[in-house]
């Protein structure tokens, strides 16, 4: 899942930066086997992230201008935070995890993970399911989160703030 997401994100970024790029050029730039590239392009077209136009010689790809809905903007604002983004990527990979497992996976203290989980639960992006004394977490709408991860673009300010916050994550 993570590999596919990463591949789709790379494809999306090349198309966004070079509108009208064609399949062979994408293959050359990304060094992805043609079958996998076609599969991912087809998926992204189906999900309305990109569209294609056939000219005389090539099928050319463009990103779609997409108006985000309120819940998508909400998810995107959480994806801008490194800790939340890593939590969501891990939950996409494993479907359901508890605090301890997430804390080990993303190498953050349980209290920090708990704080972020709580925010994500309150925002209805993930849901908590109690199993005895332990709570497991799952993403409410994994399809949308996966799409937005492709769409998401790292910003200088967000990186700066993430690095600054990490400096104070002790214990």
């Amino acid at each position: 899942m993570e590999f596919e997401l990463e591949t789709r994100k790379r494809i999306y970024e090349v198309i966004r930066d070079s509108p009208g790029v064609h399949l062979r050029e994408l293959k050359r730039r990304l060094n992805i086997v043609i079958g996998s590239l076609q599969y991912n392009l087809h998926y992204m077209e189906k999900k309305n992230l990109i569209y294609s136009i056939k000219d005389e010689d090539y099928v050319r790809y463009f990103v779609k201008d997409r108006k985000l809905e309120a819940n998508e903007r909400n998810i995107l604002s959480f994806l801008r935070r490194k800790a939340c983004r890593h939590i969501l990527i891990n939950l996409l990979q494993h479907t359901s995890l508890n605090n301890k497992e997430l804390s080990t996976a993303i190498k953050l203290s349980p209290s920090t993970v708990s704080w972020n989980l709580n925010k994500l639960v309150k925002a209805d992006i993930i849901k908590k399911e109690k199993a005895g004394r332990i709570s497991n977490f799952t993403i409410v709408n994994p399809e949308i989160v996966a799409e937005l991860l492709i769409f998401y673009r790292e910003g200088f300010l967000d990186n700066l703030l993430d690095n600054f916050i990490e400096m104070w994550e002790i214990g």
Binding site: P110, T112, L117, N118, S135, I170, G171
Partner: peptide, 12 residues
């Protein structure tokens, strides 16, 4: 700031 820890919510 260094001593402040985020509260672990019940069950989380």
């Amino acid at each position: 700031a260094l001593l402040t820890k985020e509260q672990i919510e019940d069950g989380i």
